[in-house]
């Protein structure tokens, strides 16, 4: 069995690619890929458009172990079309979630990095994301925990932002971004006055890991280190499974209603942080993770 402290301290999650993340997250040598690149399963739509294809269509799926426990794992490759979901990419993920119901692993780990629907095969991509959502919730209904990890260059947006929030629990780093419409999409459509996507500080305090934790949209904020993600995933595995019962969803409903009532008129994340009773909200983005968690530990986090 591997140690809980993580065996590969010092590997940035943000900078790693899809395969590197899997390698360092799971027990050494335990990963076995399903439909790997040797199968040369590529997108027929990209081929039709004369565009470059990837032999894994931008997602790696397979079996592995974490601290000796059997898991299924999927990892989206931001380096290929921003991790966007096309027909094949989506079907690999849906298949993995359906496999979970048969195999009953300790968990399904989803390493999410995606801009959402792949616009080059938009119609197939949209349906594929809907299929992922249904398969994910079916796995949860069968009692399999689904844990999402977010922290790559491209963040987690579009339909995959909805998929993320269908997981039992989410782990994010400070660099991780989670939302629905990306800042550049909002700027392009609604104008720079609505959302200035070039204002990096604004982007991070609106959709970044720290704000998502304070809001209760994610459960764990970790250093940008794959070992830290591993420890957080193991911690999450120790928790009771979040069920999809009427009572659980009524509780979520109350929390989301309260959030809208309390912060619905806020224009900036710093206003929300201030209302949460945090001292010196303007300083929060500057704090390192440990200091940030210490400064905000009194906040009752939804669903944490």
């Amino acid at each position: 069995m591997s140690d809980l402290s993580g065996r590969h301290r010092g590997h940035s999650y943000y900078e790693a690619n899809a395969r590197g993340r899997i390698t360092h997250l799971l027990d050494a040598g335990s990963f076995r890929e399903i439909l790997g690149p040797t199968e040369r399963l590529t997108s027929p739509h990209l081929e039709l458009l004369g565009l470059p294809c990837a032999f894994d269509d931008g997602i790696v799926v397979g079996h592995g172990r974490i601290d000796g426990r059997q898991v299924l794992i999927a990892s989206q490759e931001g380096g290929f079309m921003g991790g966007a979901v096309g027909e094949v990419h989506g079907a690999k993920l849906t298949g993995l979630l359906e496999l979970a119901v048969q195999e009953r692993p300790a968990a399904v780990l989803l390493l999410l990095e995606s801009g959402g629907v792949r616009l080059h095969e938009a119609n197939a991509g949209l349906i594929a994301i809907s299929e992922i959502i249904r398969a994910l919730l079916a796995a949860r209904a069968a009692g399999i925990p689904v844990i999402g990890l977010i922290g790559g260059v491209y963040g987690c947006f579009g339909g995959m932002g909805i998929v993320a929030r269908c997981c039992d629990s989410l782990i994010i780093n400070e660099e991780g971004r989670l939302g629905l419409s990306g800042p550049d999409v909002i700027e392009t459509t609604m104008g720079v006055e609505e959302f200035d996507a070039a204002d990096r500080a604004l982007v991070w305090r609106t959709v970044g890991g720290k704000h998502r934790l304070l809001l209760g949209e994610v459960q764990r904020l970790v250093e940008d280190d794959i070992a830290a993600f591993r420890s957080a995933a193991l911690e999450t595995l120790e928790q009771p499974i979040q069920d999809l019962s009427l009572e659980a969803l009524e509780a979520e409903h109350q929390a989301l209603s309260a959030r809208l009532t309390d912060y619905g008129s806020c224009q900036d994340a710093t206003e929300i942080w201030s209302q949460l009773g945090l001292h010196d909200p303007l300083q929060l983005p500057l704090l390192d993770i440990q200091s940030f968690l210490k400064a905000t530990c009194k906040i009752g986090r939804e669903g944490a």
């Binding site: 929030r165 939302g179 419409s181 909002i186 959709v207 809001l215 959030r259 806020c266």
Partner: peptide
Amino acid sequence: LSKRDELLGING
């Protein structure tokens, strides 16, 4: 499409 919806966590 709005900054305010994103701020509140519209995907959630």
